[in-house]
Design a binder for these strands. Structure first.
Lengths: 112, 112
DNA sequence: CTATAATCTGTCGAGAGACGACATGTCGAA
DNA sequence: TTCGACATGTCGTCTCTCGACAGATTATAG
């Protein structure tokens, strides 16, 4: 009655955010969401209810920080960017994800 | 203080079980868990707290059913096997998973 | 001037999947 | 008779994601 599959594969949102910030340098939450949707060709949809908690999470991990600024549309926004620690973490997170998916892929292929 | 990352990538357990039953034909829960661990080279560990709820879930979906039997070690066990519906579902689930991971992979590769 | 839409940041409760710990029991071997 | 492996299952907790809502601000259309 009330739960679809996640629009974003479970557990990958942090990775998507980190990778986007690595590429774009600095973005505010709303633009980050739009950017992820755009780059994925609208295949990955994400709600505010996901993006802001994720940003808080990443900030608590110390991988991103934010500063107040003004958006291109003249609104007061929080610009998020990778910290030193976060920049180091990106390849680690990518490696973890690839390792996990490769494991499953190998499993599915095995015994075939 | 009390939660590690899942040993099995989130959302893949159903798939691992279905695929294993497809290959093995029929197994009881305990053997299924051991089999998954073994085929993955002990990389995928899974506890009873995961396997049995998953089996109930799959049964409710109508993809597997079970019959009582006696194990090779002479215990009363429930042998699980794919239903017709479940047999059809395996390639669907695999396709869904591959689609999702390909999407993320493409995203990570984009803008590089 | 005022209404409305778009932008932007958050919070809340609910649902799903996985986990460790525990409860319960059986069987074979020491 | 005790112990360890086998086997099924439940419970409470955690994390991640979601939709819905709340609350602002700004530009634009009427």
């Amino acid at each position: 009655m009330s739960k679809d599959k996640p629009e974003v594969p479970y557990g990958t949102l942090d990775l998507l955010i980190l990778r986007t910030l690595e590429t774009m340098g600095s973005l505010h939450g709303y633009a980050l969401a739009r950017r992820i949707e755009q780059v994925s060709g609208e295949s990955l949809q994400l709600s505010q209810g996901s993006i802001y908690p994720a940003l808080i999470r990443l900030q608590q991990e110390g991988w991103i920080d934010c500063t107040w600024g003004v958006s291109e549309t003249n609104r007061k926004v929080k610009f998020y960017a990778l910290t030193e620690s976060g920049r180091k973490q990106v390849p680690v997170e990518i490696a973890n994800w690839e390792k996990a998916t490769a494991l499953v892929a190998r499993f599915l292929g095995a015994t075939s």
